[in-house]
Design a protein around this nucleic acid. Structure first.
Length: 742
DNA sequence: ATTAGGCGATTTTTT
DNA sequence: ATCGCCTAAT
């Protein structure tokens, strides 16, 4: 492997302490990823077979990047390394072992939305009114209980009020239904392995023996279930290396338990503790400011962060009038910085506490033709039409999945409303059949109209046909055939609106993703595709290569770094966010979140706030965040907005009407091309918006020639759907698209 | 009985 | 943007 001279002494210590428990307390920018990759490379180099190494990361993206670097260091020897998120690796393990728990290998994975759907179903079956008891709240209670390994029975025993009593009832039934549906939610992906290991000692021994070296990244954000799971697995060899920073623990709301890191020494008494305190990322100014802020927290392991980096620029506080002004101010700074430092757009990130804040920022960026990408928000795989098609595929893979059945039974509309479906469900329940099985007995279901019966029968025939075809067709052929048969695409085409076209595109995109998966992956099965899709996070698909400003929440910023960082919305109530802050503990988590944001910045940090902000549909007067007062004055300068932002550059151009569907779509080649480098100058293009009609052949500067399929909207909101042979179908806002009619 | 369409409310963070 | 809820149309 490449020499250890690339790492400092502390890092070397963490890399070389191979046997026994190790905890690395790694300050921001201290080379934590480097330690993990070198440590794994080191293990492999000294002869540890890669399959004996289990490395758990927080995101798939982090895992993939590290895997790549390790391969670079040691080559093919690292091929059988198990590296990934807790959820994806234990899902994989469960695929082979779940039969011992009464599940089938093809189990479905429910995301939060699916899980909420099931909870609503359960509530309605138990006659618990969702008006009175918020299903979302019940779901989060149940998830919380599961993260702390509280069984439904235990939960029931400890109820203290009516709400918890109802929650207990739902919890019991919910778990039962999941099993009936041969499905697991996110929490089960951790709980079921624990169940497996505690009930089947032989299996536990097998995995203990297999995973002799365990590494965990972002240990401060593991929850009770993850802690127990790892404790079980590491119990025999005790070669466990955890890396984390208590100051960056920001997932308590999801059950992350900071005690895991604080109590590590107690759990593993002879642990080697290494502190990485030298920061290689940020200027001295940024590091000092962040340090001053985090020192206000009482709960923490004190650290002595230092850096050899330059002092750098002061931190700039941008005092703005309102949220629009904030966007405009940030944009003008982006221009300034990118000219001054010769930086590219991709070197810049704008962070905020809540996704809702992205809107005004996006508007400002779009107005000024600055390319941007959003991480988070409504993800591609969460879109209704995409979830619908996925539900069909899920049902094919796992016909017991009643939740998916319910999702698609009347999509597209086939005359099966609440009443008909209710009858079918009653029938299935009394006969102990799955809904899919029940469709085979449509004539026995009492109370179905003849129309409904015909529909149910057709559904049954269709499903049986595709079930048969699963063994005959490739996964991509099968998906395409199924999508064709359900006829959803022509329906969307008929609808003709820009929204429908965007749905149409999304479904095409999904089909391409399936094809791509089947061509690129050795383990290409529909099961694996569905599993991967339900476990990808938005950050995983982030493309750093595109030259665009990145917009993201402070939570998604963890583990990333950018030369220039803007943190927007530093206002009391927003950061810290009041709806979360009840007492000191919550305030300290908000402060850690802010700290995570600050420490992402390498060269320059901007903090902005607005005096007035449009929130919850009304103007609200904001005061600057207390966090701004927690840095010493000599590190910061404040600039008060003059509220006159002449957009420096009137080149008007757009990616087509992205209309908040932003990066939900993977980018096409044409768009990537657009993002790269310079933007063409359209200063003098004449306005031809009014001449564009359906059927016209038009020319676009980037996408080339295309045919107009549909025009909608009016005035400045005039939009067109154009089919470009070179780039596919695009929704364009005519105001910006500068089409030439040919 | 079913569907379409309109209306209003909703936005904390996410594997 | 999406969901739940309502009403009118079929």
């Amino acid at each position: 492997m490449s020499s250890l001279s690339e790492v400092n002494l502390k890092q070397q210590e963490a890399i070389r302490a191979v046997q026994g428990p190790v905890m690395v307390i790694a300050g921001p920018g201290s080379g934590k990823t480097r330690v993990l990759t070198f440590r794994i490379a080191h293990l492999v180099t000294i002869g540890v077979p890669a399959y004996q190494i289990l490395a758990l990361t927080f995101t798939n993206k982090a895992a993939n990047e590290m895997k790549e670097r390790i391969t670079h260091l040691v080559g093919d020897k690292s091929r059988h390394l198990w590296m990934g998120t807790f959820h994806s690796l234990f899902a994989r393990l469960l695929r082979t072992e779940c039969e011992k728990l009464g599940f089938q290998k093809n189990f479905s994975i429910y995301d939060s939305q699916d899980s909420l759907g099931l909870i609503k179903t359960v509530m309605s079956d138990l006659s618990i009114p969702s008006q009175q008891f918020n299903p979302q709240a019940i779901r989060s209670r149940i998830s919380g209980a599961k993260n702390q390994l509280i069984t439904p029975e235990d939960y029931l025993k400890s109820v203290i009020d009516l709400f918890e009593e109802k929650t207990a009832k739902v919890y019991i039934e919910y778990q039962k239904r999941l099993k009936q549906n041969n499905a697991m939610d996110f929490d089960d992906l951790l709980l079921r392995p624990i169940e497996l290991f505690t009930h089947h000692n032989k299996i536990l021994l097998k995995y203990q023996d297999r995973f002799r070296f365990i590494l965990i990244d972002e240990y401060q954000d593991t929850n009770r279930a993850q802690y127990v799971l790892i404790k079980l697995l590491a119990d025999q060899y005790r070669n466990i290396c955890v890396v984390g920073d208590d100051a960056q623990s920001i997932y308590a709301f999801r059950g992350a338990d900071i005690r895991n890191i604080l109590d590590f020494e107690r759990d593993y008494p002879n642990a080697v503790i290494v502190r990485l305190e030298q920061n290689y990322r940020s200027t001295r100014t940024i590091l000092s400011a962040a340090d001053q802020v985090i020192k206000k927290n009482i709960d923490q392991i004190t650290k002595d962060l230092w850096t050899e980096n330059q002092e750098g620029d002061k931190i700039t506080i941008l005092a703005c009038e309102d949220d629009q002004d904030e966007g405009a101010t940030i944009v003008s700074r982006i221009y300034e910085e990118s000219n001054k430092l010769k930086l590219q757009f991709k070197d810049i990130a704008i962070m905020y506490r809540t996704n809702a804040q992205s809107r005004s920022l996006e508007d400002a960026l779009r107005k000024n033709s600055i390319p941007y990408m959003i991480i988070g928000g409504v993800e591609f795989y969460q879109r209704k039409e995409v979830k619908d098609v996925l539900a069909y595929l899920r049902l094919l893979v796992n016909p017991r999945d009643d939740e998916s059945f319910m999702r698609i039974v009347n999509v597209p509309a086939r005359g099966l409303g609440d009443v008909a479906v209710g009858r079918l469900r009653d029938f299935a329940a009394t006969k102990s059949l799955t809904l899919f099985e029940a469709t085979d007995h449509a004539s026995e279901v009492s109370g179905l109209t003849s129309k409904a019966r015909t529909s149910v029968e057709a559904l049954s025939v269709m499903f049986k046909k595709y079930l048969r075809l699963t063994s005959e067709m490739s996964m991509s052929e099968l998906s395409r055939a199924l999508v064709d048969e359900i006829g959803i695409l022509p329906l969307l085409k008929e609808e003709g609106t820009v929204e429908a076209m965007s749905r149409w595109e999304n479904i095409q995109e999904l089909l391409s993703a399936i094809t791509e998966f089947s061509e690129l992956r050795a383990d290409a099965t529909l099961e694996n595709f569905l599993q991967e899709v339900s476990l990808v996070s938005d950050i995983d698909t982030w493309e750093e290569t595109a030259n665009a400003v990145t917009l993201l929440t402070l939570h998604s910023a963890k583990g990333l770094e950018f030369p220039i960082v803007f943190i927007a919305g530093l206002e009391e109530g927003l950061l810290p966010l009041y709806s979360t802050v009840v007492e000191r503990k919550e305030l300290e988590e908000e402060r850690r979140l802010y700290y995570v944001g600050m420490t992402r910045a390498m060269k320059k940090l901007y903090l902005s706030y607005a005096k007035v902000r449009f929130r919850f549909g009304e103007m609200s007067y904001q005061s600057p965040s207390r966090f701004l007062d927690e840095m010493e004055g000599d590190l910061v300068e404040t600039v008060v907005s003059s509220r006159r932002h002449v957009s420096r550059d009137m080149r008007s151009f757009s990616l087509g009407d992205r209309n908040r569907d932003r990066k939900d779509r993977k980018k096409t080649d044409a768009e990537s091309h657009y993002f790269s480098d310079t933007m063409p100058d359209y200063e003098n293009a004449s306005d031809v918006s009014n001449q564009v009609r359906a059927g016209n052949i038009v020319e676009h500067e980037v996408f080339g020639r295309g045919k107009v399929l549909h025009v909608s909207g009016s005035g400045e909101f005039l939009k067109a759907v154009v089919d470009f042979p070179a780039a596919g179908k695009k929704n364009l806002m005519l105001k910006y698209a500068r089409l030439k009619v040919l």
